[in-house]
């Protein structure tokens, strides 16, 4: 004989509310978040993809958003200014991150091997100060330092008879000047991550290497580097992503000039969107930059994964 509790159980297992409560409850919980994601991220992204195929320009009433196919992409890919800014960005990210990594790694290893206690604390405090500064403030400080007529750097260089480089007014130097400011500010980021990565390596490995008679270079190549590969990949990736997307220091120091000599791709993208208000071209450029960034990040990660033994590093 079936009890009343069995009836209830049977009812629960067949009703809609029961289905919602018991069978796929986790999906129902996810629905609000999913809807918000769709409304605020996915839909605008799809709309921006559509806009990139139109002629929409918010400053001219006649450019209403008519479909123009791949014209915006073609215009950009054949534009000298687009490739100039891509080249500037590649230079800025490539050299900047490479130098920051090299300096940061050297300083991190030095600190890990040769400093202890309060000395480490004081060094860390000093090294982290630039990183704590708002990039726009750092840019303003460096703009004043690089001021050619009365800036302190040129004053000192002039005093020792080295000459007074045109830091910000020369097309050959302006991007490098921004790069110097960037290196000054973000090398501590590399130090911080790589230092903690180095400390996480077991001292037993170094002990074993010493017993086997390995010299410092051998130990570095076969103990330190392989053990830190994952940390290095993360540090470089994070820093490269930041350097790729931020243009605040460039904006403050040179405004992209002289001409377009220090103009970064994201700044040009910003100008297309929020100075020319040419939304078709701006969205097209955003998608091109996204594509470049995704491809480069994947190439970087796959190269790292092909390291010793094919171990995944991240």
């Amino acid at each position: 004989m079936a009890s009343s509790s069995d009836d209830t159980q049977a009812h629960r297992s067949t009703g809609l509310s029961s289905y919602v409560r018991n069978e796929h409850l986790e999906y129902w919980f996810a629905i609000p978040a999913l809807l918000i994601l769709l409304a605020l991220v996915i839909f605008p992204m799809l709309w921006s993809l559509w806009t990139s195929f139109t002629d929409l320009n918010l400053s001219v009433a006649t450019r209403n958003g008519a479909f123009v196919g791949l014209a915006n992409y073609a215009d950009l890919l054949t534009s000298e200014r687009f490739w100039t800014t891509i080249g500037n960005t590649a230079y800025y990210v490539g050299f900047g991150v490479a130098i920051e990594f090299t300096l940061g790694f050297a300083i991190a290893l030095f600190m890990a091997n040769y400093t202890r206690g309060r000395v480490t604390t004081v060094l860390f405090t000093l090294l982290l100060l630039p990183m704590m500064m708002a990039p726009i403030v750092a840019g303003l400080i460096w703009r004043l330092l690089f001021q050619e007529s009365f800036g302190p750097i040129n004053y000192l260089l002039g005093a020792v008879g080295v000459g007074q480089p045109p830091w910000l007014s020369s097309t050959a130097m302006s991007l490098n000047s921004v790069l110097i400011a960037d290196i000054w500010q973000w090398t501590p980021f590399m130090i911080l991550i790589l230092y903690t990565g180095r400390l996480s390596i077991s001292e037993d490995l170094y002990e074993a290497a010493r017993i086997d008679g390995a010299d410092r270079w051998f130990t570095f190549r076969h103990v330190t580097l392989p053990q830190m590969k994952g940390v290095i990949a993360i540090a470089i990736l994070l820093r490269a992503m930041d350097a790729f997307k931020f243009f605040d220091k460039m904006f403050v120091m040179t405004g992209g000039g002289p001409g377009t000599s220090s103009e970064l791709a994201t700044y040009y993208n910003y100008l297309l969107g929020f100075d020319s208000f040419s939304m078709g071209k701006a969205t097209a450029m955003s998608w091109l930059l996204l594509l470049f960034a995704v491809v480069l990040a994947n190439v970087f990660l796959s190269v790292l994964e092909r390291g010793e033994g094919g171990d995944r590093v991240v």
């Binding site: 990139s52 997307k245 931020f246 994201t266 993208n269 910003y270 969107g273 930059l289 996204l290 960034a293």
Partner: peptide, 8 residues
């Protein structure tokens, strides 16, 4: 939104 993806 799209610009945000590439850092704009």
């Amino acid at each position: 939104a799209a610009a945000g993806l590439s850092g704009c």
